[in-house]
Protein backbone atom coordinates (compact mmCIF):
# COMPACT_ATOMS: atom_id res chain seq x y z
CA UNK A 1 0.00 0.00 0.00
CA UNK A 2 1.36 3.47 -0.85
CA UNK A 3 2.80 5.25 2.14
CA UNK A 4 0.40 8.25 2.07
CA UNK A 5 -2.55 5.83 2.33
CA UNK A 6 -0.91 3.93 5.14
CA UNK A 7 -0.28 7.18 6.95
CA UNK A 8 -3.87 8.25 6.38
CA UNK A 9 -5.19 4.97 7.78
CA UNK A 10 -2.76 5.07 10.68
CA UNK A 11 -3.92 8.60 11.50
CA UNK A 12 -7.57 7.55 11.33
CA UNK A 13 -7.32 4.24 13.17
CA UNK A 14 -4.36 4.58 15.51
CA UNK A 15 -3.26 8.10 16.34
CA UNK A 16 -6.79 9.40 16.95
CA UNK A 17 -6.90 6.92 19.82
CA UNK A 18 -3.81 8.61 21.34
CA UNK A 19 -2.28 5.28 22.37
CA UNK A 20 -0.12 5.11 25.47
CA UNK A 21 1.61 1.84 26.30
CA UNK A 22 3.65 0.15 28.95
CA UNK A 23 5.77 -2.96 28.56
CA UNK A 24 5.72 -4.90 31.84
CA UNK A 25 8.18 -7.35 33.32
CA UNK A 26 7.41 -11.06 33.40
CA UNK A 27 5.65 -10.86 36.81
CA UNK A 28 3.77 -7.70 35.75
CA UNK A 29 5.22 -5.97 38.76
CA UNK A 30 7.32 -3.23 37.10
CA UNK A 31 7.21 -1.12 33.95
CA UNK A 32 10.11 -2.00 31.67
CA UNK A 33 9.41 0.48 28.92
CA UNK A 34 6.67 2.95 28.13
CA UNK A 35 5.50 5.47 25.56
CA UNK A 36 2.68 7.79 24.53
CA UNK A 37 1.14 10.74 26.31
CA UNK A 38 -0.16 9.37 29.61
CA UNK A 39 -1.43 12.76 30.77
CA UNK A 40 -4.26 12.28 28.23
CA UNK A 41 -5.71 9.63 30.48
CA UNK A 42 -5.17 10.76 34.04
CA UNK A 43 -3.62 13.89 35.53
CA UNK A 44 -2.17 12.01 38.49
CA UNK A 45 -0.74 9.12 36.56
CA UNK A 46 3.01 8.49 36.98
CA UNK A 47 4.16 6.06 34.35
CA UNK A 48 7.88 5.73 33.84
CA UNK A 49 10.50 3.10 33.36
CA UNK A 50 11.10 1.13 36.56
CA UNK A 51 7.84 2.27 38.19
CA UNK A 52 5.79 -0.28 40.12
CA UNK A 53 2.63 -1.20 38.21
CA UNK A 54 0.44 -1.16 41.32
CA UNK A 55 1.58 2.39 42.16
CA UNK A 56 1.31 3.78 38.64
CA UNK A 57 -2.11 2.35 38.01
CA UNK A 58 -3.63 2.45 41.47
CA UNK A 59 -7.19 2.13 40.17
CA UNK A 60 -6.22 -1.32 38.89
CA UNK A 61 -5.70 -2.55 42.45
CA UNK A 62 -6.95 -6.10 42.85
CA UNK A 63 -6.66 -6.68 39.11
CA UNK A 64 -5.23 -10.03 38.09
CA UNK A 65 -2.67 -10.04 35.27
CA UNK A 66 -2.84 -13.80 34.80
CA UNK A 67 -5.19 -13.49 31.85
CA UNK A 68 -5.63 -10.87 29.14
CA UNK A 69 -8.36 -8.34 29.85
CA UNK A 70 -10.16 -5.40 28.34
CA UNK A 71 -11.72 -2.71 30.50
CA UNK A 72 -13.85 -0.63 28.16
CA UNK A 73 -14.80 3.03 28.65
CA UNK A 74 -12.96 3.76 31.88
CA UNK A 75 -13.53 7.36 32.98
CA UNK A 76 -10.41 8.30 34.97
CA UNK A 77 -10.79 11.98 34.10
CA UNK A 78 -14.14 13.68 33.75
CA UNK A 79 -15.55 13.11 30.27
CA UNK A 80 -12.42 11.32 29.03
CA UNK A 81 -12.97 7.66 28.26
CA UNK A 82 -10.25 5.05 27.96
CA UNK A 83 -10.17 1.45 26.83
CA UNK A 84 -7.61 -0.39 28.91
CA UNK A 85 -6.12 -3.49 27.26
CA UNK A 86 -3.80 -6.01 28.83
CA UNK A 87 -2.38 -8.84 26.76
CA UNK A 88 0.74 -10.83 26.10
CA UNK A 89 2.37 -10.89 22.70
CA UNK A 90 5.33 -13.21 22.18
CA UNK A 91 5.29 -13.74 25.95
CA UNK A 92 5.75 -10.04 26.67
CA UNK A 93 3.08 -8.37 28.79
CA UNK A 94 1.65 -5.09 27.52
CA UNK A 95 -0.73 -2.52 28.93
CA UNK A 96 -2.29 -0.35 26.26
CA UNK A 97 -4.48 2.68 26.91
CA UNK A 98 -6.65 4.00 24.05
CA UNK A 99 -8.70 7.18 24.09
CA UNK A 100 -12.28 6.37 23.09
CA UNK A 101 -13.86 9.63 24.24
CA UNK A 102 -15.32 10.59 20.88
CA UNK A 103 -17.21 7.32 20.29
CA UNK A 104 -18.28 7.07 23.93
CA UNK A 105 -19.77 10.56 24.04
CA UNK A 106 -21.78 9.76 20.93
CA UNK A 107 -23.07 6.54 22.53
CA UNK A 108 -23.80 8.42 25.75
CA UNK A 109 -26.28 10.64 23.95
CA UNK A 110 -28.20 7.61 22.65
CA UNK A 111 -27.94 5.86 26.00
CA UNK A 112 -29.21 8.92 27.82
CA UNK A 113 -32.24 9.21 25.52
CA UNK A 114 -33.06 5.52 25.81
CA UNK A 115 -32.78 5.56 29.62
CA UNK A 116 -34.84 8.73 29.96
CA UNK A 117 -37.55 7.26 27.75
CA UNK A 118 -37.55 4.10 29.81
CA UNK A 119 -37.80 6.11 33.05
CA UNK A 120 -40.66 8.14 31.62
CA UNK A 121 -42.58 4.99 30.67
CA UNK A 122 -41.92 3.62 34.13
CA UNK A 123 -43.19 6.80 35.72
CA UNK A 124 -46.34 6.79 33.56
CA UNK A 125 -46.96 3.17 34.50
CA UNK A 126 -46.62 3.99 38.19
CA UNK A 127 -48.99 6.96 37.99
CA UNK A 128 -51.56 4.93 36.03
CA UNK A 129 -51.12 2.04 38.42
CA UNK A 130 -51.82 4.24 41.38
CA UNK A 131 -54.98 5.74 39.95
CA UNK A 132 -56.58 3.02 37.87
CA UNK A 133 -54.88 -0.23 38.87
CA UNK A 134 -52.40 -2.59 37.28
CA UNK A 135 -54.83 -4.28 34.88
CA UNK A 136 -55.78 -1.01 33.18
CA UNK A 137 -52.16 0.15 33.11
CA UNK A 138 -50.96 -3.03 31.49
CA UNK A 139 -53.65 -2.94 28.85
CA UNK A 140 -53.19 0.80 28.22
CA UNK A 141 -49.45 0.45 27.73
CA UNK A 142 -49.92 -2.51 25.41
CA UNK A 143 -52.64 -0.61 23.52
CA UNK A 144 -55.25 -3.28 24.38
CA UNK A 145 -57.65 -1.01 26.26
CA UNK A 146 -59.67 0.54 23.50
CA UNK A 147 -63.29 1.50 23.12
CA UNK A 148 -65.24 2.47 20.11
CA UNK A 149 -65.77 6.23 20.61
CA UNK A 150 -69.26 5.85 19.18
CA UNK A 151 -70.15 3.37 21.92
CA UNK A 152 -69.84 -0.35 22.41
CA UNK A 153 -72.52 -2.66 23.90
CA UNK A 154 -71.40 -5.06 26.60
CA UNK A 155 -72.82 -6.96 29.54
CA UNK A 156 -71.28 -5.43 32.62
CA UNK A 157 -71.93 -4.86 36.30
CA UNK A 158 -71.81 -1.48 37.94
CA UNK A 159 -71.12 -1.13 41.63
CA UNK A 160 -71.55 2.01 43.71
CA UNK A 161 -69.96 2.20 47.13
CA UNK A 162 -70.48 4.92 49.69
CA UNK A 163 -69.31 5.65 53.23
CA UNK A 164 -72.21 6.11 55.60
CA UNK A 165 -72.10 8.96 58.18
CA UNK A 166 -69.37 10.70 56.24
CA UNK A 167 -71.19 14.04 56.16
CA UNK A 168 -71.35 14.21 59.95
CA UNK A 169 -67.70 13.16 60.19
CA UNK A 170 -66.73 15.80 57.64
CA UNK A 171 -68.50 18.52 59.61
CA UNK A 172 -67.05 17.50 62.96
CA UNK A 173 -63.37 17.13 62.19
CA UNK A 174 -60.46 19.07 60.76
CA UNK A 175 -60.24 18.71 56.92
CA UNK A 176 -56.71 17.25 57.09
CA UNK A 177 -57.88 14.58 59.52
CA UNK A 178 -60.91 13.89 57.31
CA UNK A 179 -58.61 13.45 54.32
CA UNK A 180 -56.32 11.07 56.22
CA UNK A 181 -59.19 8.91 57.47
CA UNK A 182 -60.84 8.93 54.04
CA UNK A 183 -57.60 7.63 52.57
CA UNK A 184 -57.51 4.84 55.14
CA UNK A 185 -61.00 3.77 54.10
CA UNK A 186 -60.20 4.13 50.40
CA UNK A 187 -57.13 1.95 50.90
CA UNK A 188 -59.45 -0.83 52.08
CA UNK A 189 -62.13 -0.25 49.44
CA UNK A 190 -60.14 0.18 46.24
CA UNK A 191 -57.76 -2.83 46.22
CA UNK A 192 -60.59 -5.43 46.20
CA UNK A 193 -62.08 -3.64 43.19
CA UNK A 194 -58.79 -3.57 41.30
CA UNK A 195 -58.06 -7.19 42.23
CA UNK A 196 -61.33 -8.23 40.61
CA UNK A 197 -60.46 -6.27 37.46
CA UNK A 198 -62.88 -3.47 38.27
CA UNK A 199 -62.50 -0.07 36.67
CA UNK A 200 -62.74 2.80 39.13
CA UNK A 201 -64.76 5.15 36.98
CA UNK A 202 -65.27 7.94 39.49
CA UNK A 203 -64.20 8.64 43.05
CA UNK A 204 -66.74 10.93 44.66
CA UNK A 205 -65.06 11.91 47.88
CA UNK A 206 -66.79 9.44 50.16
CA UNK A 207 -67.61 6.84 47.52
CA UNK A 208 -66.90 5.50 44.09
CA UNK A 209 -68.53 4.25 40.91
CA UNK A 210 -66.89 1.12 39.58
CA UNK A 211 -67.44 -1.06 36.53
CA UNK A 212 -66.78 -4.80 36.17
CA UNK A 213 -66.59 -6.89 33.02
CA UNK A 214 -64.59 -4.47 30.90
CA UNK A 215 -61.10 -5.68 31.76
CA UNK A 216 -62.02 -9.29 32.40
CA UNK A 217 -64.59 -10.70 30.00
CA UNK A 218 -63.87 -14.34 30.88
CA UNK A 219 -65.83 -14.30 34.14
CA UNK A 220 -69.36 -13.10 34.76
CA UNK A 221 -69.17 -9.43 35.73
CA UNK A 222 -71.73 -9.91 38.53
CA UNK A 223 -69.46 -12.49 40.18
CA UNK A 224 -66.49 -10.14 39.99
CA UNK A 225 -68.48 -7.25 41.45
CA UNK A 226 -69.95 -9.36 44.24
CA UNK A 227 -66.57 -10.80 45.24
CA UNK A 228 -65.18 -7.25 45.43
CA UNK A 229 -68.20 -6.07 47.45
CA UNK A 230 -67.88 -8.94 49.89
CA UNK A 231 -64.19 -8.30 50.48
CA UNK A 232 -64.82 -4.58 50.95
CA UNK A 233 -67.48 -5.24 53.60
CA UNK A 234 -65.28 -7.73 55.43
CA UNK A 235 -62.18 -5.53 55.37
CA UNK A 236 -64.10 -2.45 56.45
CA UNK A 237 -65.70 -4.46 59.25
CA UNK A 238 -62.26 -5.59 60.50
CA UNK A 239 -60.90 -2.06 60.27
CA UNK A 240 -63.92 -0.68 62.09
CA UNK A 241 -63.47 -3.20 64.93
CA UNK A 242 -59.97 -1.88 65.41
CA UNK A 243 -61.05 1.75 65.17
CA UNK A 244 -63.83 1.09 67.66
CA UNK A 245 -61.30 -0.32 70.15
CA UNK A 246 -59.16 2.77 69.69
CA UNK A 247 -62.15 5.06 70.13
CA UNK A 248 -61.95 6.36 66.58
CA UNK A 249 -64.87 7.47 64.42
CA UNK A 250 -66.56 4.58 62.58
CA UNK A 251 -68.02 4.62 59.09
CA UNK A 252 -69.81 1.72 57.40
CA UNK A 253 -70.15 1.15 53.69
CA UNK A 254 -73.32 0.82 51.67
CA UNK A 255 -73.03 -1.00 48.34
CA UNK A 256 -75.34 -1.26 45.34
CA UNK A 257 -74.75 -3.56 42.36
CA UNK A 258 -76.64 -3.67 39.08
CA UNK A 259 -75.90 -5.85 36.05
CA UNK A 260 -76.98 -5.80 32.43
CA UNK A 261 -76.24 -4.48 29.00
CA UNK A 262 -74.66 -1.07 28.80
CA UNK A 263 -72.96 1.10 26.25
CA UNK A 264 -69.31 1.85 26.97
CA UNK A 265 -67.75 4.75 25.22
CA UNK A 266 -65.81 7.93 25.32
CA UNK A 267 -67.65 11.18 25.91
CA UNK A 268 -66.20 14.59 25.26
CA UNK A 269 -64.25 16.35 22.58
CA UNK A 270 -60.63 17.09 21.68
CA UNK A 271 -58.39 17.03 24.71
CA UNK A 272 -61.08 16.57 27.37
CA UNK A 273 -62.50 13.06 27.12
CA UNK A 274 -63.75 10.60 29.67
CA UNK A 275 -64.71 6.95 29.72
CA UNK A 276 -68.38 6.50 30.46
CA UNK A 277 -70.99 3.77 30.88
CA UNK A 278 -74.65 4.28 30.00
CA UNK A 279 -77.43 1.83 30.68
CA UNK A 280 -80.57 1.38 32.80
CA UNK A 281 -78.85 -0.85 35.37
CA UNK A 282 -76.24 1.89 36.03
CA UNK A 283 -78.89 4.21 37.46
CA UNK A 284 -80.44 1.27 39.25
CA UNK A 285 -77.11 0.43 40.94
CA UNK A 286 -76.76 4.06 42.08
CA UNK A 287 -80.26 3.98 43.57
CA UNK A 288 -79.56 0.65 45.29
CA UNK A 289 -76.45 2.09 46.90
CA UNK A 290 -78.57 5.02 48.10
CA UNK A 291 -80.96 2.54 49.76
CA UNK A 292 -78.25 0.32 51.28
CA UNK A 293 -77.60 0.70 54.98
CA UNK A 294 -74.06 0.46 56.38
CA UNK A 295 -72.73 -3.08 55.85
CA UNK A 296 -75.39 -4.01 53.26
CA UNK A 297 -74.92 -5.18 49.69
CA UNK A 298 -78.05 -4.52 47.64
CA UNK A 299 -78.35 -5.99 44.17
CA UNK A 300 -80.76 -6.13 41.27
CA UNK A 301 -82.34 -9.40 40.09
CA UNK A 302 -79.77 -10.10 37.36
CA UNK A 303 -76.92 -9.85 39.85
CA UNK A 304 -78.77 -11.86 42.47
CA UNK A 305 -79.46 -14.75 40.08
CA UNK A 306 -75.75 -14.98 39.21
CA UNK A 307 -74.37 -14.84 42.76
CA UNK A 308 -77.11 -16.53 44.79
CA UNK A 309 -75.00 -19.69 45.23
CA UNK A 310 -72.33 -17.61 46.97
CA UNK A 311 -74.48 -16.03 49.66
CA UNK A 312 -75.78 -17.34 52.96
CA UNK A 313 -79.28 -15.96 52.50
CA UNK A 314 -81.10 -13.02 51.02
CA UNK A 315 -84.03 -10.76 51.61
CA UNK A 316 -86.12 -9.66 48.65
CA UNK A 317 -88.25 -6.57 48.85
CA UNK A 318 -90.00 -4.28 46.44
CA UNK A 319 -88.90 -0.68 46.74
CA UNK A 320 -90.01 2.44 44.94
CA UNK A 321 -86.78 3.83 43.51
CA UNK A 322 -86.59 7.46 42.47
CA UNK A 323 -86.77 7.85 38.68
CA UNK A 324 -87.09 4.07 38.21
CA UNK A 325 -90.24 3.03 39.98
CA UNK A 326 -91.07 -0.15 41.91
CA UNK A 327 -88.15 -2.56 41.74
CA UNK A 328 -87.26 -5.93 43.21
CA UNK A 329 -84.26 -5.37 45.46
CA UNK A 330 -82.14 -8.18 46.92
CA UNK A 331 -80.26 -7.72 50.17
CA UNK A 332 -77.41 -10.22 49.85
CA UNK A 333 -76.58 -11.64 53.27
CA UNK A 334 -73.08 -12.87 53.87
CA UNK A 335 -71.06 -14.24 56.75
CA UNK A 336 -68.63 -11.81 58.34
Amino acid sequence: MPEPLLNYLAEMQIYRLSPAWAKLDEACHCIVECGGDWSNFDDDIAVHRGAVVEESFIYLCGQSFDEPFLLPQMEFKENRFTNVHFFRAESIAWLLFLDVTEQTLMQQLQQQNANELSLLRDQQRRVLDRYVGGAVTERSIEGRLTFDAAGERRNISTMFIDLRSFTIFNQKYDPQHVMDVLNQYMNKMLPPILDEFGLVDKITGDGAMTVFGVLNEQEDSALLAFRAALRIQREISTMNDLRRQQGDYIMDVGIGIGSGEAVLGILGAHDRRAFTVIGPHVNLAARLEGEAKGGEILADETTFLTVQHLIDSHECRSIELKGIGASQVYNLRYSK
Binding site: I58, P72, E75, F81, Q107, Q112, N115
Partner: peptide, 12 residues
Protein backbone atom coordinates in the same frame (compact mmCIF):
# COMPACT_ATOMS: atom_id res chain seq x y z
CA UNK B 1 -29.97 16.01 36.91
CA UNK B 2 -29.71 12.46 35.59
CA UNK B 3 -26.64 11.76 33.46
CA UNK B 4 -26.21 8.22 32.23
CA UNK B 5 -22.85 6.69 33.20
CA UNK B 6 -20.85 5.10 30.42
CA UNK B 7 -18.43 2.30 31.28
CA UNK B 8 -16.93 2.94 34.70
CA UNK B 9 -16.37 6.22 36.46
CA UNK B 10 -13.40 6.02 38.78
CA UNK B 11 -13.19 7.94 42.04
CA UNK B 12 -11.13 7.64 45.19
Amino acid sequence: KYLSTMGVKIDR
